[in-house]
Amino acid sequence: LVVFEWLAIVKLLMSGKYDLLHSHWILPQGFNGVIASIPLKVPHVITVHGSDAFALKGKVLSQFKKFSLTHADAVTVNSSATQKQVLSIAPNIKSLNLIPMGVTNVQPNSIRCENLRKKYKIGNGPLLIFVGRLVDVKGVEDLLYALSILKAKLANIRLLILGEGPLRSPLESLAKELNISNNVVFTGWVESKDIINYLTASDIFIGPSKRSADGSVEAQGISFIEAMQAGTPVIASNVGGIVDVIQHEKTGLLVAQENPEQVASSVLRILDDKELESKIIKGAKIKVKSLTSLSTAEKIANVFNDCIKEEQVTNKN
């Protein structure tokens, strides 16, 4: 795979049609990009999304990552947490740029939102939502424990879990063990264009992320920004890049990782304090204005232009 990927990159660059190479992920794309771009004198940018920096540990892989990051003309990262991790791997990067991934401005369908609330709400009980892959780092197990705590006080509460992943079956089994099967719905995969409707239809978004055994952590979390855009108050763990966008009691509520009790108490706090809920929603709406896909595109385009100009100056000299 690595060899043929490298050959494909070299073939494209040798065509002379490209002024810059942009690699997503450090390994193997970033590494292949470096060894293909340097001899052909094509500027190269690596975008680090998070898991490629936090995971894939070990001396050999760390050296490959360091080589790739150090020899790229520029590196972009999506959060302060990713930036810190990247610098711990390769402190001497030519150009390191913090550029969060943004979201597009999508408007919900009011009729669809109303139908979703009618379908999933139990009476007048609150509707909670989680969006993401069902993997260890997302902390969905802790969310189910939090739901079991909340059920004792709010019998009509319901949680929507949007997403697929290897942990779906174990999580469904845990829901049965906790006697909350009627209070949680695993929707499976949902079309991206429909997620805004689910978020808008829900009362609270919860992202109880945690650091996994392999060191992976939520590098940014687009679903948090999408919930903020939808006007749905967010409860999130204070780990990784989440804290770049979720500021406690300003744009959401932060809780300690692996702490179902704090998640449950935060849900009750939002439900009981409408003034706090309104403050959080307003703050989140303001924050998300700077986290658009257009803003991301403009910043990355500036990095591209700088690299191309620098390469042109170098070639002239």
Rank of each mutant, 00 (worst) to 15 (best):
I89Q: 14
A74F: 00
A72K: 01
T76C: 04
N78F: 02
V75M: 06
S88V: 00
V75S: 08
S51H: 09
I89P: 13
F67M: 02
T76Y: 01
T70V: 05
A74R: 04
K65S: 06
Q85C: 13
K84W: 05
F64P: 12
H71M: 06
S88A: 13
K59L: 09
N78Q: 06
G58L: 02
S79H: 11
K59M: 09
S62D: 12
S68I: 00
L69F: 03
Q63F: 11
V75G: 11
Q63L: 12
Q83H: 12
H71D: 01
S51A: 14
L87C: 14
F54A: 13
H71V: 01
L56D: 07
D52S: 10
N78V: 09
S88P: 00
K65C: 08
I89C: 15
S80Q: 10
V86G: 14
K57C: 05
S68D: 02
H71K: 10
Q83E: 14
L61R: 15
V77Y: 07
A55V: 07
N78H: 09
G58C: 03
A90D: 05
D52Y: 04
Q85A: 15
Q83K: 13
Q83A: 11
A74P: 07
T70L: 00
A90Y: 02
F54E: 07
L69E: 06
A81N: 08
L69A: 10
A72F: 02
I89S: 14
S62N: 15
T76V: 01
K66P: 04
T82D: 11
K84C: 05
K84D: 12
I89V: 12
L69I: 03
V77N: 09
L61H: 10
T76S: 05
L61G: 05
V86L: 04
S88N: 14
T82I: 04
K66Y: 07
S62E: 08
K59Q: 11
S51G: 10
